[in-house]
Structure formats: structure tokens, C-alpha cells
């Protein structure tokens, strides 16, 4: 048994093997931080690379994330303190008027997989909800998703409301119709057109 087996099981989309390997590593006395960072989080980085290179598609991303989550559930009781919150707290949701969630869910899974504390507000989320959650949770980044061209103005409204509320939280936007130019126009701090890119962007924004 090795941590590499956990990584390989996630990349092979084998949830049961992930759970078995995580249990085996815990029982063998392996550092839980290593299991988390080199096994589970490391695997999601590989999954992201495979998505970016066109080897993985949405079904594979979802299955890998599910396998990773199963491993994380086993590991959670052994993790010390609030490791995820230490990396940063991310608020995510699909904006008002839009019920599409596949892009949002992919980003959620990848960002969770990268070790962040993710608060998923779901779909059709009001501007006020984004603002209040960002405030009360002391969030580092708010991620706004939209699939419909008709709901993109809700992104602008939310970014504006966050700025008006005087929050220091960063905002990023994404979704099929959203462009970098649009992100700049509405004053968002970043844009990504895919889930792995969103993870990288969040890492940079949180580190800045």
C-alpha cells in the first residue's frame, strides 16, 4: 500500500478502492496530512490536468470527485483542527434566475479537492445572499456562475453589491457564456472558463 494507490484509484474513478486505500494508510500510521495532500488533493490536480488536456470530460470529473469525497469522509475524523478553513473560505453559487449547476458543481468539487472550505449556496442565488454569506463567513473568494446570457447581468449586480458593501472578498466569474472581457467590464477580480483554471485562480487570489 502507498499513497500513490489512493491517487491512482481516484484517477481510475474507483471509489471503493479509494476508501479501502485511505483506511489502510490510516491504519498503517501514515501522516493524515500526507494522505490528504499527496493522495486526495494530489489526485484532483491530476484529474484537473486530464480535463484540461481533453482526456477527461464531465462524467469522469464527477466520478473522480465522488471518489475523492468518499476518501475525504473517511479521513475527516482524523484531520486536526480546521485545516480547510486555514487554506481559505470560498463562497460559490449560480446567480439569480439561473438554475444550471454543472459548472458550479465541478468548480465546487475541484476547489474542495484542493483543500479549501467551500460554502455552496446552490442555484438561483440572490445578490443579498452572496453578500451576507461572504460577510458572515469572512470569505476569501466569491465565485459566481451563470450559463444563461440572460442571467449574466446578475453577476454584475452581485459584484457591484459586494464592492458597495465594502467587503475585501475577491470575486471571480465563470460559465459558458462568460468571457474575460465581461469579467473585466463588471469589475470581477478574475475569470476562468474551466474548473481546474478556477482552482489555480483561487489559489493565486488567496495567496495574494
Amino acid at each position: 500500500m502507498a499513497i500513490a494507490d489512493i491517487l491512482n484509484a481516484i484517477v481510475s474513478l474507483k471509489k471503493d478502492e479509494v476508501v479501502e486505500n485511505v483506511i489502510a494508510e490510516i491504519e498503517a500510521g501514515t501522516q493524515v496530512d500526507d494522505i490528504l495532500n499527496k493522495g486526495l488533493i494530489g489526485a484532483m490536480d491530476v484529474v484537473g490536468e486530464k480535463f484540461s488536456s481533453g482526456e477527461f470530460f464531465v462524467p469522469e470529473m464527477l466520478m473522480a470527485a465522488k471518489a475523492m469525497q468518499a476518501g475525504l469522509e473517511v479521513l475527516k475524523p482524523h484531520l486536526s483542527g480546521d485545516a480547510a478553513a486555514e487554506k481559505g473560505t470560498i463562497i460559490i453559487g449560480t446567480v439569480k434566475g439561473d438554475l444550471h449547476d454543472i459548472g458550479k458543481n465541478l468548480v465546487t468539487m475541484m476547489v474542495e479537492g484542493a483543500g479549501f472550505n467551500v460554502i455552496d449556496l446552490g442555484v438561483d442565488v440572490d445578490t443579498d445572499k452572496f453578500v451576507s454569506e461572504a460577510q458572515t463567513r469572512n470569505a476569501d473568494v466569491v465565485c459566481l456562475s451563470a450559463l444563461l446570457t440572460t442571467t449574466m447581468p446578475s453577476m454584475a449586480k452581485t459584484v457591484e453589491a459586494i464592492k458597495e458593501a465594502g467587503l475585501k472578498v475577491k470575486t471571480i466569474v465563470g460559465g459558458a457564456p462568460v468571457t474575460d472581457a465581461y469579467a473585466q467590464q463588471i469589475g470581477a477580480d478574475g475569470f476562468s472558463d474551466n474548473a481546474p483554471g478556477a482552482v489555480e485562480l483561487i489559489r493565486k487570489l488567496v495567496a495574494a
Binding site: 474513478l13 464531465v58 462524467p59 464527477l62 466520478m63 465522488k66 444550471h100 449547476d101 454543472i102 458543481n105
Partner: peptide, 11 residues
């Protein structure tokens, strides 16, 4: 649901 169908492809 999109997520569900995408997962159904495997499950």
C-alpha cells in the same frame, strides 16, 4: 438533471 445523467453514464 445534468449531473445525474453524467454520473449515470458510469453508474
Amino acid at each position: 438533471g445534468t449531473n445525474e445523467i453524467m454520473m449515470d453514464i458510469y453508474e
